[in-house]
Computed example of a mutant assay.
Amino acid sequence: MSQAAYTFFFSIYPYICLAVFLLGSLFRFDRDQYTWKSDSSQLLRAGQLRWGSNLFHVGILFLLFGHTVGLLTPHALYESMISAQQKQMLAILSGGIAGSLCFVGLTLLLHRRLFDPRIRLTSRRTDIAILAILWVQLVLGLVTLPFSYADRETAGTMLSLANWAQHIVTLRPDASMLSGVEWPFKIHLVLGMTIFLLFPFTRLVHVWSGFGTVSYAFRPYQLVRARRLNLPRGHTRSQHRI
């Protein structure tokens, strides 16, 4: 990879993906609310979906939370409780388990999309494409585990990735921080950012709705009042159906 391409993908591309992710989601919610859904195919075939969907969602939610906390938490905040080497081993074990569950679930979901004739006919190209991209991303994530295990004594890879992500968030991009990182991590990063870029144009937007349901816990109660009926004299309520 040339130096210009390297700088673009790890210093500029993250901000492009983040801007499209946020503004694109807002624009779609404003203009195409009827497409803001997961397009469930449960009515066509429920058995394989039940296992695939549950395993996929449990795994992907854990991975998203783990990646967010692991990359964006400064080393100084946890070094008094856990060393970088211990944190890397914890990430390898927990990420490996969650990634394996997610991989099995996503493989089931992709299989039913590709090989069930009825579901294939009702699926958009973007549905299959995003599942395939997520599948490749999961494979890349699992491929990085042996590299992380080999680096467990120094935890240099984990610290480099975390420093790079924290510099991106604080608007101080520095692609040179990834110079010593192995190639699977770099491809994993680029594809992960690309998923955020594609997010607003796929069924993945329904993820926002999941976070939105938290607001229901703080909404006021809905008041429902009984409607009064002005019945003619001599008639009872049982004689009139509402």
Rank of each mutant, 00 (worst) to 15 (best):
M1Y: 09
M1D: 02
T7S: 15
F8A: 02
F9V: 09
S11W: 01
I12F: 00
P14T: 01
P14N: 02
Y15A: 04
I16Q: 01
L18Q: 07
L23D: 01
L26E: 03
L26F: 10
F27Y: 06
R28G: 01
Q33E: 14
Y34V: 15
Y34H: 12
T35S: 10
K37L: 07
S38F: 14
S40C: 08
Q42Y: 04
Q42P: 08
L43E: 04
L44I: 15
R45F: 00
R45S: 06
R50W: 02
W51I: 12
S53E: 10
N54P: 00
N54M: 07
F56I: 02
F56W: 13
H57S: 07
V58F: 15
I60F: 13
L63V: 13
L63W: 02
L64H: 07
F65L: 13
G66S: 06
L71E: 03
T73L: 14
A76D: 15
Y78V: 14
S80P: 07
M81C: 07
S83D: 15
Q85F: 08
Q86T: 14
Q88F: 04
M89T: 13
L90R: 12
G95R: 00
G95A: 04
G96V: 04
I97E: 00
G99Y: 01
S100Y: 01
C102T: 02
F103Y: 12
V104W: 05
L106F: 07
L106Q: 04
T107G: 10
L108A: 12
L108E: 12
L108N: 04
H111T: 07
H111Q: 12
R112N: 05
R112L: 08
F115W: 08
D116S: 05
S123L: 06
R125L: 11
T126S: 10
A129I: 15
A132L: 01
A132M: 04
L134M: 06
W135L: 09
V136W: 08
V136G: 04
Q137V: 08
L138K: 02
L140P: 00
G141A: 10
L142P: 05
L142Y: 11
V143Q: 03
T144Q: 05
T144E: 04
S148K: 14
Y149I: 07
A150E: 03
A150I: 03
D151L: 02
D151G: 10
D151R: 01
R152G: 11
E153P: 09
T157V: 02
M158N: 11
L159F: 08
S160A: 13
L161R: 04
A162V: 15
W164Y: 02
H167V: 00
H167N: 13
I168L: 12
L171C: 03
R172H: 07
P173L: 03
S176T: 12
M177V: 00
G180M: 11
V181I: 09
I187D: 09
V190H: 09
M193T: 06
T194R: 11
T194I: 10
I195N: 03
L197G: 14
F199D: 05
P200R: 05
F201P: 09
V205D: 07
V205H: 12
V207R: 11
W208E: 01
F211I: 11
F211C: 06
F211E: 03
T213G: 06
S215W: 08
Y216R: 15
A217N: 10
A217F: 15
F218H: 14
P220Q: 08
Q222R: 13
V224S: 14
A226M: 06
R227I: 06
L229M: 14
P232V: 02
G234C: 12
T236D: 14
R237S: 06
R241H: 13
I242P: 00
